[in-house]
Simulated assay, not measured.
Amino acid sequence: MHPTNTPTGRLAAVGNQMIEIHLWLSTALARIRARLDSPNPPDGARPSRDLRAHCLAFCAALGRHHTGEDAGAFRLLAEEIPELRPVIDNLIADHEVVAGILRRVETVLTGDPAVPPSRVRAELDGLAAILETHFRYEEKRLVTALNALTGRAGTAEELLGLPRP
């Protein structure tokens, strides 16, 4: 594990911290999807209130992470390493697709009580598939560049939108 900040308030191994955040988000999504497979309440119409709360909290955390990357790490990398701009543009486009799925998940979870659990499952399965490829692509293309930011003032949370789990 890497500290979020060194004692002098400088960045350290931001790329590695991004991987840790991705692992945490992937694990959280896998837990939510697994809970959808557990028995539903007797009415069977919607996931439990607890599951909805966990799912909405996950959606908010994922949204903060992507918004943080767009405004933090991606902006900084695009300024400092212009040849990464096409990669960053692809990642930002992915973030927009993910944001659309998150909106649909939130609508399904907070909207019509008659929405079947299968609709929630379909949205979360699609989200998991996109995130798997998105996270791997982002890690493959950006970890080394992010780790090179070591020694700059700031926090990984400022660049990645979330603290390291």
Rank of each mutant, 00 (worst) to 15 (best):
S48T: 14
P82W: 09
S26Y: 04
R35W: 10
A12E: 11
P163H: 15
A60F: 09
G72F: 06
P7C: 03
H54P: 02
G9D: 10
L162T: 00
G151L: 08
S118P: 01
A28K: 11
H66P: 03
E83S: 14
N16T: 07
E106F: 06
T67Q: 15
P41Y: 11
I130A: 09
N90P: 02
N5K: 15
E139K: 05
R10P: 00
G154E: 03
L131W: 01
G100N: 13
A30Y: 01
E69L: 04
L162C: 06
G100I: 04
V120W: 03
G63S: 13
R64C: 11
A122Q: 13
N90D: 14
M1L: 13
L29I: 06
F135I: 04
H95G: 06
L84I: 06
L56H: 05
W24A: 15
T4C: 15
V97S: 14
V98H: 02
L62I: 08
G111A: 05
G154Q: 08
R141V: 10
E123P: 01
I101A: 02
N5T: 15
P7Y: 07
L162K: 05
A13N: 09
R75K: 12
L77Q: 04
H66S: 10
E69T: 00
A145S: 13
N147D: 15
A128E: 10
L29A: 03
R10I: 03
D43R: 08
P82V: 04
L56V: 08
Q17V: 05
E20T: 06
V14D: 01
I92R: 13
A61W: 00
D89R: 13
I92N: 05
P86F: 08
A99H: 05
I88A: 03
T144F: 09
R33Q: 13
P47Q: 08
A153I: 14
Q17P: 07
R152S: 05
E80T: 10
P3L: 12
R119W: 07
L124A: 02
T4S: 15
T155C: 06
L146W: 00
H65R: 05
A60P: 02
Q17T: 03
G161S: 09
G9S: 09
A45E: 11
G161D: 02
A122N: 05
A153W: 11
D125Y: 06
K140Y: 12
R46H: 11
H66L: 15
I88Y: 01
